[in-house]
Amino acid sequence: MTITTGYIISALLLFGIGMNGLMTCSHQLRKILAVNLMASGVFLILIVTGFGTDGSAIDHVPHAMVLTGIVISVSTTALALTLACRIQQRLNRSADETAEGNDDD
């Protein structure tokens, strides 16, 4: 019981720290990392849920959920990183050549 509580508290902490990072950090990379931290917090609680409160059989459903969640988290992170890289590249380039044609929508 105490172990479960400990896990839950640290999971909540992770979620909170991530949330704080997402709100306060200005750098995009930090924001992406912060979201990952939040995801880890949620996954941790899921794993603990599967552990079973009464110590009997292990519930497999949360584990399946965690696996799926991790896959999703990987792909979202990949997309976010790509976007962040492109934005940064664009900023760097426009610092070099300011004349960037803005043709349409």
């Binding site: 997402l22 924001k31 992406i32 995801a39 979202t76 997309l79 976010a80 934005i87």
Partner: peptide, 8 residues
């Protein structure tokens, strides 16, 4: 990117 972060 902002949309993605909010969505996440």
């Amino acid at each position: 990117l902002r949309y993605l972060l909010v969505s996440l």
